[in-house]
Design a protein around this nucleic acid. Structure first.
Length: 500
RNA sequence: GGGGGCGUAGCUCAGUCUGGUAGAGCAGCAGCCUUUUAAGCUGUUGGCCGGAGGUUCAAAUCCUCUCGCCCUCACCA
């Protein structure tokens, strides 16, 4: 059992002494941060505070010093037997690190100058029956801090209890999302909700999670891999500026920058193209960075990043030329295939050969690792971008950009394809290319969504559409290593309880 | 899926190379200490050493399999 016998026994003893270890409410007058901020005014004043005990230092039979921690601060308590009834003092003797208590008392300073609350009343707010592994700390140094990463991910609540910084990561995450909303609302975008459960998935190239709807004769359904197609239906329906912040689900690899479920923001704006949106993207992100960091420059893990607009703009072909020293336009299909084999002998080159996919391959292998500062990679090959308008003046490319920071793709955007006839052909072409992957894993990656084709058939105005990976932005702004650090409850393999 | 690392008490770790039957600090428990703050001092309870099998007189330690986590490569066109 996960409970600790001695703690369960203490809970029972509290109950037997007439003390409710799990009461209904407690009224506080201040947070601990407020007490520190208003220190001068509060000395010798009565306050009521609540928090979790993080240290207990008994001093003889009559006195305890304790540390109390609330959401973002910690303060010392002074507990003296003479101030309490025997029943409460008995309860105090049954307290452990990790228990929640409410304190009414006076603010004072000890002779060593430590701001302290002299407790005159103590209310047990919650008796923990699982031992809480709170670390000790001296200044910045921490001792015995939980370091088992598996435990910190599986039991995130434990991570938050034991590490104020882990709590702060969630606060910053919330502030980022809030700043994004504010920016979009200031520009008169309408926040809309799109379905998580869909009968046809689309808008990205990814394998979906499958489920079924019992009430609809076990109709097969999928979890959204992207909100793109429903958002475009909003545009068709006459909403000129829409955005959504939602979970996407992709049944693919899990690693430091991929969780099966992740948070995406997408927006669509009628009458604009990708050039307009590139500017809007750097405006949005630099505004958010400035709001969170106080500046458009900050350091991520020893790397100084500068988000000040304008960001570098580089076409995908120029990027391959610059970092890979390859001029794709001067190379034949055979030469490209040879180059791919050279970079990855295992790679299964599709037949028929696709220059578009070859360019994508070369970009990933030669360029991505160099994209540290915020950079827009633009003008991708048509073959890998079925939802995008052809580039004006070059029908083999499309009007698309992907912003990169710290080698991570943090977004994706297009001049959206609005010609319904061409859209239908392009989706069918993509599906034909998928025959290649169907052979490999038996999954049809891209069913053609006829409803979507019909929607844009009703007339879709020119539209710029943009996606932004929220989790990856949070990784950068919270200086974390992994997407697991910024997703509250990342997906892990089921624990085998019988093995424990 | 490949390669590497890790898994020992509630927590942090030692012990593994060179098998000899499990240790420390903190927490807990019993005391001492009426302003301490990683409080201190004395004593003390905790562990089927992730799981299963094997080798051996003897396995935390060596071997095989297996579960989980981390890193990395691949996959994710």
């Amino acid at each position: 059992m996960v409970f600790h016998d001695d703690l369960v026994a203490k809970r029972q003893q509290l109950i037997e002494k007439g003390i409710d270890p799990y009461p209904y409410s407690f009224t506080t007058t201040h947070t601990l941060t407020q007490i520190r901020q208003q220190e001068q005014a509060l000395i010798e004043k009565d306050v009521a505070v609540a928090g979790r005990l993080t240290a207990l230092r008994q001093q003889g039979k009559q006195v305890f010093f304790a540390d109390l921690e609330d959401f973002d601060n910690r303060i010392q308590l002074y507990l003296k037997k003479a101030n309490f009834t025997d029943a409460i003092w008995d309860a105090i003797l049954l307290l452990d690190i990790g228990d929640w208590v409410g304190i009414q008392g006076k603010v004072f300073k000890t002779k060593t100058g430590e701001l302290t609350i002299w407790a005159l009343q103590l209310t047990v707010l919650s008796k923990a029956v699982v031992r809480v592994p709170i670390s000790k700390e001296k200044g910045e140094k921490k001792f015995y801090q939980v370091s088992d990463e598996e435990m910190l991910y599986r039991q995130r609540y434990l991570h938050w209890i034991t590490d104020r910084e882990a709590r702060q990561t969630m606060v910053i995450r919330a502030k980022i999302i809030s700043a994004i909303r504010r920016f979009m609302e200031n520009r008169e975008f309408l926040e809309v909700t799109t379905p998580t459960l869909e009968l046809i998935y689309g808008g990205a190239s990814a394998r979906p999670f499958e489920t079924q709807v019992n009430a609809l004769s076990n109709q097969k359904a999928y979890l959204r891999i992207s909100p793109e197609l429903p958002l475009k239906k909003f545009i068709v329906g006459g909403f000129p500026k829409v955005f959504t912040i939602c979970q996407n689900f992709r049944n693919e690899g899990v690693d430091r920058s991929h969780n099966p479920e992740f948070t995406m923001m997408e927006w669509y704006e009628a009458f604009t193209d990708y050039q307009y949106q590139m500017k809007q993207f750097e405006d949005l992100v630099s505004t958010v960075v400035k709001e969170i960091k106080g500046d458009t420059k900050f350091t991520y893990q020893d790397t100084a990043l500068d988000f000040t607009p304008p960001w570098r703009r580089l076409t995908i072909l120029d990027a391959i030329l610059e970092y890979g020293k390859l001029d794709v336009n001067q190379l034949s299909d055979a030469q490209l295939a040879a180059k791919i084999k050279e970079l990855d002998p295992e790679f299964d080159i599709p037949d028929p050969f696709s220059r578009g996919h070859a360019i994508d391959f070369l970009f990933e292998h030669l360029v991505e690792e160099h994209l540290v500062q915020p950079t827009f990679i633009m003008d991708h090959p048509l073959a890998i971008s079925p939802l995008t308008k052809k580039k004006r003046g070059n029908p083999e490319l499309v009007e698309r950009f992907e912003p990169f920071v710290m080698r991570m793709e943090i977004g994706n955007a297009y001049s959206e394809l609005t010609d319904p006839v061409e859209q239908y052909e392009r989706l069918k072409a993509q599906r034909a290319y998928d025959a290649h992957s169907i052979k490999q894993d038996g999954v049809v990656h891209h069913p053609v969504d006829i409803d979507f084709i019909r929607a844009i058939g009703l007339g879709m105005p020119p539209t710029g559409g943009v996606g932004l990976g929220i989790d990856r932005l949070v990784i950068l702004l919270t200086n974390q290593n992994s997407i697991r650090d910024v997703i509250a409850f990342p997906l892990l393999r089921a624990e085998d309880e019988t093995a424990k």
